[in-house]
Amino acid sequence: MAPVDRLQPKFVDYIPDDVEAGVLYVSRRFSTATHLCCCGCGHEVVTPLNPAKWSIAERDGRVSLTPSVGNWSFPCRSHYIVSDNRILWASSMSPEAIAAVRRRDIQDAVRLAPPRPSWVRRLLAGALVAWTSTVAAITRPWRK
C-alpha cells in the first residue's frame, strides 16, 4: 500500500469492517474517527473524539484533526497532522518525548473526566438512604 497525502472525510453512523485507504471515516454517533495509517503500512488508526483525545473541525467539506496522530505503537511509528484533508508529516519523536506525551494524555483524561462520586460518597449515600427508609418504616405507625 502506498502512502497517502490526503484523507477524504466520509461521515457514517458505523465504521465499516473494510476501511479504505485515503478515507477518514467519522462517526458522530460513536464520537470516533478511523482511517488507515497514512504511511501505507495498512494499520487501522482509531481516534476517539472527546476533549481528552482528538477533536475534528469541519470547514467547506474539509476536516482537520487535532492534535497530531502519533502511531507510536505501530512498527512504522508514523507521526502526522490532518489539516484541511491534507497530511502534514511531523517529525519523529524520541521514546522519552513519546512517554511524556502519553503521561500528559493520561493527565488530560483524568482532568477532563466527568466527576464521579468516590466509593466513600457512594457508601454514605447508600447508608443515608437505608437510614431514612428505616426511620420512615419505624415511625410510620405513629403518623396520622
Rank of each mutant, 00 (worst) to 15 (best):
L36R: 07
R103G: 04
V12C: 05
S78M: 04
N85R: 08
D60C: 05
L49M: 09
L128M: 05
W89M: 10
P114W: 13
A33E: 11
S133N: 11
V23P: 02
V12I: 06
H35C: 14
P9D: 09
V63M: 14
L123Q: 05
R77P: 00
D18P: 02
R143M: 01
P3Q: 06
R6N: 09
S68K: 14
S91W: 05
A100P: 03
S68V: 15
Q8R: 10
R121P: 04
W119M: 15
T34K: 12
S92W: 08
K10V: 13
P117N: 14
M93C: 02
S78V: 03
W54M: 14
A57F: 13
Y80D: 09
N71P: 05
I98V: 06
R103A: 12
G70K: 04
C38V: 12
R28Q: 13
P3S: 08
P95C: 01
T134V: 11
Q107A: 06
F74C: 02
A113P: 11
D13W: 09
L112I: 01
L7W: 02
V45K: 03
I138F: 08
V23T: 03
V63R: 14
W119A: 15
W142P: 04
S118D: 07
V19C: 10
A136H: 06
A100W: 04
G22T: 04
C37G: 06
V82A: 10
V110M: 11
D5R: 13
T47A: 14
H79M: 14
V101F: 02
F74W: 04
V19P: 08
P48C: 01
R28A: 09
P114R: 14
I56W: 15
S78H: 02
I138W: 06
V63N: 13
